[in-house]
Design a protein around this nucleic acid. Structure first.
Lengths: 148, 148
DNA sequence: ATTATACTTGTGTATATACACTTAATTTCC
DNA sequence: GGAAATTAAGTGTATATACACAAGTATAAT
């Protein structure tokens, strides 16, 4: 406990959480920049991809799959519905709603997929195989902290 | 620490960005939970700590120090001003504003600092020294992707 | 001194995130 | 069959995030 000033050196912060949040912002912005030509963000591409993966699923199930809060997902879908990339209709169980990918949504995924690959390749190359493996494992372990 | 559930691994996505975002959410929620007794989030504690570190600074300088967007900082300060943890007054240069920590803000930091230590210790123990070092280095490298 | 340039902040807009509470529908249990 | 418990979705509220644009102030250039 010698010098308090060193508790916050320039970079990185001593706070694991803050370091994660900063890296998350930086990397998200990097992906978003690369994805710009297709008109959606990395968060939105992820949403579309999960809708494609679990076709005709419901909101709660999709939220569980994506591991985000149900109400967050609900609101994140809004701009994608408005731009016609996904559509929502009533499910068989009247409590549920069914989420569908539109043709435009599929086209956007196709375009976004290519761009995503560029970003992904760039990051992978930037880190190298060993660090990439490390990172993936560490993040998986950290994510396990989330309830359920 | 009782908050940690050891039910990993959850399968990582192939997307580095998504993995980061998920881990960021999970870890932020973990810290937020531990910080609950002091009434602020980890993001807010970080803001207060940076205000303390760079006393009487301006919005733009503080944003640069925290490495977040200036307008984001501007809005994040609002609830802290309303709850009386920080105060804002005119700076010498009439363009600028001076950000100050209030006595209540200092008390909140003191309380938050202890709780933060608990969360930090929990995470550090959960990962272990080697992984913690790896993580810190990887995140610093990734954050370097952000434009200046 | 006036103009041009750079700097500092604020606002409108929009997405991302999640908690608390509510409503509606289904399932379970007696 | 009807009450109780569970499940699915929606809304209000609030914070976190950042881009585009605007307006005011200070400094540099002429």
């Amino acid at each position: 406990m010698k010098h308090i000033k060193n508790i916050y050196p320039k970079r990185p912060s001593p706070c694991n959480c803050l370091n994660l949040r900063r890296a998350s912002r930086a990397v998200s912005q990097f992906y978003d920049k690369v994805l710009e030509p297709c008109g959606i963000s990395i968060a939105q591409l992820a949403l579309l991809r999960h809708v494609e993966l679990a076709e005709k699923t419901t909101i709660s199930k999709l939220a569980k799959l994506m591991r985000i809060d149900r109400t967050t997902l609900n609101r994140n879908m809004k701009p994608l519905v408005e731009t016609g990339l996904i559509s929502i209709c009533a499910g068989k169980d009247s409590r549920t709603k069914q989420i569908n990918l539109t043709p435009a949504g599929r086209r956007t995924i196709a375009k976004g997929w290519e761009l995503w690959g560029e970003a992904q390749t760039a990051i992978s190359g930037y880190l190298g195989d060993d660090e990439l493996t490390q990172l993936t494992q560490l993040l998986a372990k950290l994510e396990a902290l989330a309830p359920d």
